[in-house]
C-alpha cells in the first residue's frame, strides 16, 4: 500500500489553514472546529477519525465547499474557497470534487447509470465512455446499470455512489462514513474500490470514518478531537489505530470527568 512512483506525491490536493467553525451563540455555542491546519496530499487515501462530535464531518464539509467556515481558509486544488460566490462554489463542486455520503446518495427516481452520470449531465458534459466503462467495471456494477436504487442492496448503492464520485474525474473525492450503514462484506467491497481508485487511477480520496478497519485501508489517518487535529498515523494497521482511538477516548472521558 505504497504510493506509486512518479506520481506528483508532494502536491497538495486540499488544505485547511486555521479553520474555525462555530455553531450557535452564547450558551449554546459549539466550536465544531477550533483551528484546524492540515494539508491533504494528492494521490493519497486519507482517513479522518475521531470520537462522535469531534468535528470530522464539519471539517470535511468546509473542505468540500459544502459549508463555509466561521474563519480560516480552505483551499481546494489551489483555489481558496473563502472568496468564492455560490455560483463558483457550485462549479467547483461540480468539476473538481466528488462525494460519497453515508446515506441518501442516490436520486431514487434515476437508474444506477443515470445516477452515475448525473454530475456530468448537470455540467452539460459528455461522458468519457471509456472511463465510464472502466469505473463501472471496477465497481462491478455492469449488470445493475438499469436498476433503480430501491432495487439494489446498500452495498451496491454505495458502489454506485463511488462510481458517480469518480466518473467526473475530480481532483479529490470526499467520503463521509461511506461504510457506516453497511455490513462487513459490503464495506470491504466499497473500501477495496476506493483503495483501487487511488492505486490504479491515482485518485485523491479523503474519508471520514470511525471504523478502524475502514481506516486501515488508507495511507494516512488524521485524528480529530474537540475540533483540533491531535495526531496522525502513516500507513497504519488496525491495532495501531485501535490503540490511538482508545487513548483519545480515555482523554475525552477524563476531560469530561474533570
Amino acid at each position: 500500500m505504497t504510493q506509486q512512483p512518479g506520481d506528483a506525491t508532494n502536491a497538495v490536493a486540499a488544505s485547511a489553514r486555521d479553520l474555525i467553525k462555530v455553531y450557535g451563540k452564547g450558551e449554546a455555542e459549539v466550536r465544531a472546529l477550533d483551528g484546524v491546519t492540515v494539508d491533504l496530499m494528492q494521490g493519497e487515501f486519507t482517513a479522518i477519525m475521531g470520537p462522535s462530535g469531534s468535528g470530522k464531518s464539519t471539517l470535511m464539509h468546509c473542505l468540500a465547499a459544502l459549508d463555509t467556515p466561521t474563519s480560516g481558509e480552505a483551499v481546494v486544488d489551489g483555489t481558496s474557497l473563502g472568496k468564492l460566490k455560490d455560483k463558483d462554489l457550485t462549479t467547483l463542486r461540480r468539476e473538481r470534487v466528488g462525494f460519497v455520503f453515508q446515506s441518501f446518495n442516490l436520486v431514487p427516481t434515476l437508474s444506477a447509470e443515470e445516477n452515475i452520470l448525473l454530475p456530468l449531465s448537470l455540467a452539460g458534459r459528455k461522458p468519457d465512455r471509456a472511463w465510464f466503462d472502466q469505473v463501472v467495471d471496477a465497481v462491478g456494477l455492469r449488470p445493475r446499470l438499469g436498476h433503480r436504487p430501491s432495487e439494489m442492496s446498500g452495498g451496491q448503492q454505495q458502489r454506485v455512489a463511488c462510481a458517480r464520485a469518480l466518473v467526473s474525474q475530480p481532483r479529490i473525492v470526499f467520503a463521509d462514513e461511506p461504510t457506516g450503514n453497511l455490513d462487513s462484506t459490503s464495506s470491504a467491497e466499497v473500501l477495496g474500490f476506493l483503495r483501487r481508485s487511488v492505486d490504479e487511477f491515482g485518485q485523491t480520496v479523503v474519508m471520514v470514518t470511525h471504523d478502524p478497519v475502514a481506516a486501515s485501508y488508507t495511507d494516512r489517518v488524521l485524528f480529530l478531537a474537540d475540533g483540533v487535529i491531535v495526531d496522525e498515523l502513516r500507513s497504519p494497521d488496525r491495532d495501531q489505530i485501535l490503540a490511538k482511538m482508545a487513548s483519545l477516548q480515555d482523554a475525552a472521558v477524563k476531560k469530561a470527568a474533570s
Binding site: T90, T91, R93, R94, E95, V107, L118, P119, L122
Partner: peptide, 16 residues
C-alpha cells in the same frame, strides 16, 4: 429537500 441538497452537492446550480 434531501434530493435538492444532493443535487446541489453534486454541482447543480440554484438555477438548475
Amino acid at each position: 429537500v434531501r434530493e435538492s441538497a444532493l443535487l446541489r452537492a453534486l454541482g447543480a446550480s440554484k438555477k438548475q
